Amino acid sequence: MQVQFNDTLEHPNSLDAFTSPSSSQTKPGAADHAIRFGRFCAIPHSRQLLMDGRPQEIGGRAFDLLMVLLKSNGGIVSKDEILDEVWPSMVVEECNLRFQVKSLRRALGSQGHMIKTIVRRGYMLIRDDVLLESEVRFEAIQSKEFSKIDTPAMTKTTAPYIVLIEDDESVRRSISTLLRSVGLGVASFESVKVYQESAHADQPDCLILDVCLPGRSGLDFQADLLKTGMRYPIIFISGHADIQMSVRAMKAGAVEFLTKPVRHQDLLNAVDQAIGACDV
Results as ranks from 00 to 15, higher is better:
28 P>S: 15
229 G>T: 10
136 V>Q: 05
141 I>Q: 08
111 Q>Y: 14
177 T>E: 11
99 F>A: 15
129 D>L: 04
206 C>V: 06
152 P>C: 06
252 A>Y: 00
101 V>A: 10
172 R>N: 14
238 S>P: 06
46 S>P: 05
85 E>W: 09
116 K>G: 04
208 I>A: 04
229 G>I: 12
55 P>H: 06
31 A>D: 07
40 F>N: 02
117 T>L: 02
221 F>E: 05
190 E>Y: 10
11 H>G: 13
50 L>Q: 02
129 D>R: 01
255 V>A: 00
77 V>Q: 04
75 G>S: 11
183 G>I: 03
179 L>W: 06
70 L>G: 00
140 A>H: 03
115 I>M: 01
196 Q>P: 08
196 Q>I: 11
36 R>M: 09
72 S>V: 05
23 S>P: 04
55 P>K: 04
250 M>F: 02
117 T>A: 03
54 R>G: 08
27 K>L: 14
245 M>S: 03
136 V>W: 00
118 I>W: 07
46 S>R: 06
221 F>A: 08
254 A>Q: 00
123 Y>N: 02
199 A>K: 13
87 W>K: 11
76 I>D: 07
170 S>T: 13
131 L>M: 09
207 L>A: 06
141 I>H: 10
69 L>I: 03
200 H>Y: 11
24 S>E: 13
13 N>W: 12
203 Q>V: 15
10 E>K: 14
163 V>T: 10
1 M>Y: 04
74 G>M: 00
9 L>G: 12
217 S>Y: 03
72 S>L: 04
251 K>R: 10
89 S>G: 11
105 R>G: 09
219 L>F: 03
91 V>H: 10
152 P>W: 03
77 V>S: 07
152 P>Y: 05
228 T>M: 14
186 V>E: 10
89 S>P: 06
128 D>W: 00
88 P>L: 12
165 I>F: 03
95 C>G: 10
132 L>R: 05
270 A>M: 00
278 C>E: 13
86 V>P: 07
27 K>F: 10
62 A>V: 02
267 L>K: 00
206 C>K: 02
173 R>Y: 12
193 K>R: 12
64 D>V: 01
14 S>C: 11
83 L>W: 05
47 R>S: 12
37 F>D: 06
165 I>P: 05
29 G>C: 03
92 V>I: 15
55 P>A: 09
79 K>F: 10
218 G>C: 06
166 E>H: 04
253 G>Y: 02
211 V>M: 05
82 I>W: 07
98 R>V: 14
45 H>E: 12
218 G>T: 02
102 K>T: 13
34 A>T: 07
217 S>P: 09
126 I>Y: 00
251 K>L: 01
8 T>A: 14
60 G>V: 08
248 R>F: 01
204 P>Q: 06
190 E>L: 11
152 P>D: 07
215 G>L: 10
160 P>L: 03
175 I>L: 13
27 K>A: 15
9 L>I: 11
87 W>G: 08
182 V>A: 05
263 R>S: 09
118 I>D: 08
85 E>V: 09
34 A>R: 09
142 Q>P: 02
271 V>I: 03
280 V>T: 12
179 L>D: 05
